[in-house]
Design a binder for these strands. Structure first.
Lengths: 181, 181
DNA sequence: AATGCCATGTAACCGGTTACATGATTTA
DNA sequence: TAAATCATGTAACCGGTTACATGGCATT
């Protein structure tokens, strides 16, 4: 029950067509809530049927024609409700940790290479976040919006920092392990 | 495609019935791969049909009778294959960050309380992990199994540490924000 | 006219979630 | 013997994933 609210947020930031939303879900919002174009079109249909958004009247709608949407008051209200509502954090769910647990039983053969690969990926993501921070949040940014966006980015940076540190630590342990096991 | 491998790992650690597995998925393995009893029974059925596990021949099977399972060689082979196979990390997906992004557009009203609640929950989880570390991994633990299990636990501890720090930082920012927005 | 890309969709599947059902065993 | 609990399941749903379809537009 989060995709509709992700879309409402994106449309409030800027009214968009399905494809534009899809592009934006490959960046910014997509960094912590990804979605494919199929999901997005399906959800846009639902939100319109429920009266939370509407197609901008400018253009005639047809297959292969751009349709832009904007948020209606009911949509804004629903987003406010959802944002303020108490929600439990989702329990951790991570296959890499699961594979380590399996390796403790059947041996670590083949795992080390993928740990190194993950380290690289996380380092790359961390560098990308840091570049965004440098570009979009120079020291002394001010508005409430900026501060909140920066806070979100900080979570991404700190998370990737955790992973890179932990993976380096894991690789050290591996180097130290009795061979093959 | 991870639940079957979580179950294979658990069964290799110790042959178990469905209910015993369910209990163990509330602790240990469940800390990073949770599962309900419905999932577990469905998956046990599949794994048995596919010849990766078998019911221990000791007892007659009947509804309401315990059935214990053990892993067959084919199951162990599949777990080895899966563990060594290269897998991409899943992109981050977090509703709390999404709610912050929404709050940047519609205002932060009501969010602060839930941030405080999340902070408490993460502090509690962190304390639980630390207690496990104190109990199960006294300084100078040695076997490869222990080192791997400790490594996994460390990931949990570091992740919860990240969340508690970040949430405290977020609450400071909130205290500093122009009122109501 | 054919090719390829842009834009919007439909359909089938799959794993996780929630609600409910049923048989066996223990306890009041 | 009724109620509670243990143990194993079935069924319906829901969101995310993958594969495929279709109409319009631009280029060659």
């Amino acid at each position: 029950m989060s995709l509709p609210h992700a879309i409402l947020t994106a449309l409030l930031e800027k009214p968009s067509s399905g494809l534009e939303l899809t592009r934006r879900f490959d960046r910014s919002i997509g960094y912590f809530w990804s979605a494919t174009h199929q999901q997005i079109y399906r959800e846009l249909g639902r939100l319109e049927r429920e009266g939370l958004i509407r197609a901008l009247p400018s253009e005639q709608p047809a297959r292969g024609q751009r349709k832009s949407y904007e948020v209606l008051p009911a949509g804004r209200a629903e987003l406010s409700r959802w944002t303020a509502a108490s929600q439990d954090p989702k329990p951790l769910r991570d296959t890499l940790l699961l594979r380590l647990r399996a390796a403790a039983v059947i041996g670590t053969a083949g795992l080390e290479d993928d740990l190194r690969r993950h380290l690289q990926l996380h380092e790359r993501q961390l560098a990308e976040y840091r570049e965004i921070e440098r570009r979009d949040f120079p020291p002394g940014s001010d508005s409430a919006q900026d501060r909140l966006h920066h806070l979100i980015l900080r979570a991404g940076i700190d998370l990737e920092t955790f992973w890179t540190r932990w993976l380096r630590h894991a690789l050290e342990e591996f180097a130290d392990l009795p061979d093959g096991s």
